[in-house]
Design a binder for these strands. Structure first.
Lengths: 118, 118
DNA sequence: TAATTTCCTTCTAAAAAGTAGAACAAATAC
DNA sequence: GTATTTGTTCTACTTTTTAGAAGGAAATTA
């Protein structure tokens, strides 16, 4: 996945706030990671609404950046409805997520008042 | 500080990615938290440039949201130069920071593969 | 005290990220 | 075929983020 960073001159590889949460939710949901489900999961974990559109444009951006990949799921035995597009984190996506986490942890540790709730 | 959320119908109280880092840096820098210094600190902690403008507009937004407050510093014994505007986190700002941290920690714990670096 | 230097803020403009919901598509049931 | 359900794609807009030019005030030097 490294070639994404090197060969292709990608526009941006930063990770926004909402982008990070969505990426994490894809990891958490595993094989059930498709837009509608992700929006649901976002709401239940945050008590904040996430429109389908937000999630979709974010997923598209994350895929363009190489943090995610996707493919259409098979038809299921369920009631009806269109096929799902299933998303999956790439190795590069996991790496970026880990870096982001390490950076935040480092900052928090430098600001002790945060921990105590002072 | 609670009235910020309730009485005044504030525009937005979300915390963007860069906003969070800047807010944290204000906490870390303490009495030395002024724009130019914050930009420097950002660069040294991330190896990523932060333009003065970015930092400034972000600080202004954070103040408008009630996460920060500021006042002009006294003239110092240094060489020369304009007065600094010193920023300080509000109780509300710390609360938001703590919530953001707790949420991230919760998500990470739900995605074990991240820890192992798998 | 006027010009200079230094440190720092304020302003302007543009790109990227985040938000919202309407429109559309495909699969099953009847 | 037509209705129903599940889910994606598209369009338009607001907020954040980015970048750097322009400007202001305090101490120093002449």
């Amino acid at each position: 996945m490294l070639y994404n960073q090197v060969t292709y001159k990608m526009k941006e590889t930063r990770l926004g706030d909402f982008e990070e949460v969505v990426l994490l939710l894809v990891g958490i949901l595993g094989t059930e990671a498709y837009p509608l489900k992700i929006a649901d999961e976002f709401e239940s974990q945050t008590n904040r609404a996430a429109s389908i559109g937000s999630v979709h444009s974010t997923l598209t951006r994350l895929e363009a950046k190489g943090f995610l990949e996707s493919e259409m799921g098979k038809a299921t035995a369920e009631r009806g409805g269109r096929r799902k597009r299933i998303f999956k984190i790439t190795a590069y996506g996991r790496k970026v997520l880990r870096e982001s986490r390490d950076f935040k942890v480092s900052l928090w540790s430098q600001y002790p008042s945060l921990a105590t709730g002072k």
